[in-house]
Design a protein around this nucleic acid. Structure first.
Length: 711
DNA sequence: TTAGGGTTAG
């Protein structure tokens, strides 16, 4: 219906007032005016004013009142619908975007023709929901109904295609747009930034400033700065920073925040700190950006200190700040501080917030308090996929692989689709349990969900098969992976080595180098461990030296341990002792422990006693070391020393933990603890073991037998 | 003289 409003001077006065109340979100005054007009019967006859009231309530987020005012309009026009649709769209929240789309459908059912204002809102809801069907449908409407010069609608279209990842469509639209303004430029630049097309984003920014920088505002600057997320872009980031200083735009707080974030992401922490300190107007985002910057660069303590400072400055933390600081606690194993932050955020009423709960669960899991993590998980009635994945990953990190798999099964029963990280964690749980059947089932889920063999799924799958002893399957997956990261190589090398195929493991390491992949410290642990299993002393030395000479990797305790193991297994016990004593590394405990075992295996009790005494001197807490030492003294007939070792063990409160082992057969896990008789077939198993032992004895595998009997 | 688009912290 066409209606040309004719307002009396008095109505115009009231209307101006209402606009003012809407702008200021002055709810009491607006409501009182509404009541006044209703009482005097002025306004039902004037749709123009009615729409303005719908708009007033909607903009003040009083949606029930807005709806009431809306249904009371006898002749709803396009504007009446637009007021509600756009108020919902502007909230940028999923459920409100869905409501906006619902309203749009009803609008069409009521035969009300949408216009450019409608599409601006509908397209931003489609962008929020990343709904490509709605975007395309709206686009066809736009072509039919909207003037191609309408910069609002076309910027909105540009935005939705950017959010959907159709950057080529967006750019085509951008180039074809007859009229562009700063919003159009900012949208296109942020689209590139969002999809990590840094060069394209910067190129567009330069095109914009080549036109003498007209229209460059805080939105354009924050968009382009958000594209610089790794160290190689810090120089162009600095250029944009200088531009912001020259144009005076740096005084706008969002620009300052984007500069701090940019330097932090580019790992120029000093520059980030300087930008933070020079910020005149800091808001909660500025503090969050710096705290997160510290946390992500491993400076957890500084992150925590800054969080305290923020509190003293009277600045209230936002959910982002809290997530940042909780991550800092996780990374530095700061459970005490983490609990304090937990108490604080409960006080602030943030405990039901999903991202915060995810960070809390993550923090407790990483700090080893898996039960607290689970409590947090259970607190939220509707955990999202990230939270499920964090909890499952938390169990895996804490070695509770059964709980990880159980939770994954529950997640499936509840119909929640996993993502790559969920699958990788569950596969890791299967690997650790050597649960091949379970692992195969998870593999079918990987296929069903259509995940590709890229990292991390590909490497988790090949690791699972390799660790469960299915080396052919592991290798098949490994070879089919489109690209392999160092972890994938490591997993396969370690799988081969652990399954007695040391030579194949070393060949794979050579292949890795030929392909130009750079080994890391884990690779060398695997390679050295393969040498150890194969008894390859010279190659062991060769790789140990290669690590620092060619790859600039300083040997860590694990590598020293492998070398002691190599020498020990080969019976080069005195060479091993000298190696330990000349090692430039602290925490020699585990090195002496390995030597002690080697001495026991080679029956060199004198040197074994020397290693054992070193362990006691260093305060070893490992019960097996004391047990071994006392059995060596027993063999040497040194009864007093046996008694001394036992006394020290008691004094230090060290008791022997029972050994435990398990195997999965036909989807059932069989567990064995030293000395238990619980397994239904225990007699049969023991008798078979003794027969095996006898066979090995006949094959002169004396040391292996001794190991079996002693453990 | 009612209704519209884009940014920074997880």
């Amino acid at each position: 219906m066409n209606y040309s409003p004719v307002l009396t001077p008095q109505s115009r006065h009231l209307f101006t007032k209402l606009l003012n109340y809407t702008h200021r979100k002055n709810i009491p005054k607006g409501k009182s005016l509404h009541a006044h007009l209703l009482k005097n019967g002025v306004f039902p006859s004037c749709p123009f004013l009615s729409n303005t009231f719908v708009n007033f309530y909607a903009k003040c987020h009083l949606f029930s009142e807005a709806h009431l005012a809306f249904v009371q309009i006898s002749y709803k026009d396009t504007v009446s619908w637009n007021c509600l649709i756009n108020a919902y769209s502007q909230l940028s929240l999923r459920r409100y975007s869905l409501l906006a789309l619902e309203l749009f459908k009803k609008m069409l059912q009521h035969h009300t023709l949408p216009n450019s204002h409608t599409f601006a809102g509908i397209l931003s809801s489609a962008a929020m929901l990343e709904d490509s069907m709605i975007a395309h449908q709206a686009h066809s409407f736009v072509v039919k109904l909207v003037d191609s010069y309408d910069v609002f609608v076309y910027s909105s279209l540009l935005n939705v295609y950017c959010k959907l990842g159709n950057l080529n469509d967006s750019r085509k639209l951008f180039d074809e747009m007859a009229e562009k303004n700063s919003v159009t430029w900012a949208t296109m630049i942020s689209g590139y930034a969002l999809h990590r097309l840094t060069k394209e984003a910067f190129c567009l920014f330069r095109m914009m400033i080549a036109g003498e920088g007209e229209g460059v505002n805080e939105f354009v600057l924050t968009s382009v700065l958000s594209a610089f997320v790794s160290p190689e872009f810090v120089d162009i980031g600095k250029q944009v920073h200088s531009f912001a200083i020259k144009t005076g735009l740096l005084s706008i707080v969002s620009v300052g925040n984007a500069v701090v974030t940019m330097y932090a992401k580019c790992e120029s922490l000093d520059d980030a700190v300087r930008a933070f300190e020079l910020s005149i107007a800091k808001n909660s985002i500025t503090w969050s950006a710096m705290i997160t910057g510290y946390a992500q660069s491993g400076n957890s303590e500084k992150a925590l200190t800054l969080f305290k400072e923020m509190h003293f400055c009277g600045m209230k933390p936002s959910e982002y700040t809290l997530v940042g600081v909780l991550n800092a606690c996780s990374d530095s194993d700061a459970i005490y501080e983490g609990k304090q932050v937990h108490g604080y955020l409960v006080k602030l009423g943030f405990e039901s917030q999903l991202y915060i709960m995810t960070a809390l669960v993550d923090m407790y899991a990483k700090c080893g308090s898996i039960n607290y993590a689970r409590k947090g998980f259970d607190y939220l009635l509707e955990p999202d996929l990230v939270l499920w994945t964090s909890m499952i990953g938390g169990y895996v990190q804490n070695g509770d692989n059964e709980s990880a798999i159980n939770l994954y099964c529950r997640m499936q029963r509840e119909g929640i689709a996993p993502n790559e990280l969920t699958m990788a964690s569950v596969l890791k749980a299967c690997s650790s349990l050597s649960a091949l059947e379970q692992g195969k089932q998870v593999h079918t889920h990987v296929l069903k969900n259509g995940f590709s063999l890229e990292v991390p799924i590909g490497s988790a799958l090949s690791t699972m098969y390799a660790k469960c002893g299915s080396l052919d399957d592991g290798n098949l997956i490994f070879r089919r992976m489109p690209a392999r990261d160092v972890a994938s190589w490591n997993a396969m090398i370690s799988g081969l080595s652990q399954n007695g195929l040391g030579i194949a493991a070393l060949e794979l390491f050579e292949e890795m180098q030929l392909e130009g992949a750079r080994p890391d410290y884990v690779t060398f642990v695997n390679v050295l461990s393969a040498c150890s299993h194969m008894g390859l002393v010279d190659r062991g030395w060769e790789y140990f030296k290669l690590m620092s000479n060619k790859f600039d990797e300083a040997p860590r305790i694990e590598h020293y341990a492998c070398m002691v193991d190599i020498l020990g297994r080969a019976g080069k016990l005195y060479e091993a002792k000298e190696f330990i004593e000349s090692a430039i590394i602290e925490h020699g405990l585990c090195l002496w422990r390995i030597l002690l075992s080697a001495c026991r295996n080679h029956r060199n009790y004198e040197l074994g006693a020397y290693a054992g005494e070193k362990l006691m001197e260093l305060g070893s807490q490992e019960s097996s070391a004391y047990v071994l030492l006392s059995s060596i003294y027993t063999a040497l007939g040194r009864v007093d020393d046996v008694e001394r070792v036992r006394r020290i063990m008691n004094l230090r409160g060290i008791s022997k933990e029972p050994g435990c082992s398990w195997i999965e057969l036909k989807s059932q896990v069989h567990v064995f603890v030293v000395g238990d008789q619980l397994h239904p077939q225990i007699k049969e198993i023991r008798s078979r073991l003794w027969r095996l032992n006898k066979l090995m004895m006949d094959e002169e595998c004396g040391s292996i037998l001794e190991e079996l009997v002693l453990n």
